[in-house]
Amino acid sequence: MTAPDYTYATIDPTLPPQTDSLGSAAIVTEAYTVIPHSVMRDIVASFLPEWTGTRAWILNRPIASGATTFAQLVLEVQPGGGSDAPEPQPEVEGFLFVLSGEFTLVLDGETHVLTAGGFAFVPPAATWSLHNTGAEAGQFHWFRKRHEFVAGLTPAAIVGNDHDLEPIPMAGTDGKWSTSRPIDPTDLAYDMHVTVVTFEPGAKIPFLETHVMEHGIYVLEGNAVYRLNDDWVELQPGDYFSLRAFCPQACYAGGPGRFRYLLYKDVNRQITL
């Protein structure tokens, strides 16, 4: 079987020249936020005390009038950099997705090498470390969510690679819209899913999805227009947007190539009142 020719957009932190105009800009509304790749520059990166040789772009944090269930970061780690104790909150679970480079993950005593497309679900209270053991800087997404504990339901660690997942076609789409799922959607131990969604040219979401799940969406490859509330937003590789609960949403992938994105959503829990 031939490995899929997937690509994974990374952040280019280089400042644009002084001759550039505001060709694209972030959008912040009460229903959604769009952070295009053009604004993810060197001067908006942060440093984290738990990490060495690392800088982070924080794409989402729980905030008033924003998505509240998760944090999402892109970390760039230099060769030899990383962390022996990445997660400062033991009640928080995580999901890692590698965009570039080579990382060695030690998770509850087991060692894994993650390259582009590699992923790992890290359960709450897990013991883990992550280091860049490659020759070049690497980037990865890190989703963090406070786990909603339910008696008798304990999520287990999951490690794999996007290239090894079989995309599951959406019903009635002739395979033009599919989802690659690292986490079994029927396993109620997990209260978050991170998936990769693929649209072939011309495919679309043919209705305005309106649901309680919040989203964090990062474009891995391709181009599309997304309907968010009453607006159509053009998207390209490296763009990011987050959606509040109940923000109406739809998508049209106009081509010329396929459109793929990394998707977070919160799932499988009763509403706390």
Results as ranks from 00 to 15, higher is better:
residue 153 L to G: 02
residue 171 A to W: 13
residue 94 G to Y: 01
residue 130 L to P: 01
residue 180 S to K: 10
residue 100 S to W: 04
residue 199 F to E: 06
residue 247 C to I: 05
residue 102 E to M: 12
residue 114 L to V: 07
residue 130 L to D: 01
residue 161 N to G: 06
residue 234 E to M: 09
residue 116 A to T: 10
residue 4 P to H: 09
residue 54 T to I: 05
residue 139 Q to Y: 00
residue 34 V to D: 02
residue 246 F to N: 14
residue 156 A to W: 08
residue 258 R to M: 12
residue 34 V to C: 08
residue 161 N to F: 05
residue 115 T to C: 09
residue 145 K to D: 06
residue 247 C to R: 00
residue 270 Q to F: 13
residue 219 V to Q: 03
residue 73 L to G: 08
residue 253 A to N: 05
residue 120 A to Y: 01
residue 38 S to C: 04
residue 231 D to A: 06
residue 215 H to S: 08
residue 236 Q to R: 08
residue 92 V to M: 09
residue 208 L to R: 15
residue 266 D to Q: 08
residue 73 L to I: 13
residue 46 S to H: 10
residue 68 T to P: 03
residue 85 A to R: 14
residue 146 R to N: 10
residue 198 T to G: 09
residue 162 D to G: 06
residue 150 V to T: 14
residue 108 D to W: 06
residue 251 C to G: 11
residue 65 S to L: 15
residue 49 P to N: 07
residue 214 E to V: 00
residue 21 S to Y: 13
residue 4 P to T: 11
residue 268 N to M: 05
residue 165 L to R: 09
residue 221 E to Y: 05
residue 261 Y to L: 10
residue 195 T to V: 09
residue 218 Y to N: 04
residue 121 F to C: 02
residue 2 T to Y: 13
residue 231 D to E: 08
residue 171 A to M: 13
residue 50 E to D: 12
residue 262 L to A: 08
residue 120 A to S: 12
residue 43 I to N: 13
residue 257 G to V: 11
residue 48 L to F: 10
residue 117 G to N: 11
residue 230 D to L: 10
residue 54 T to V: 04
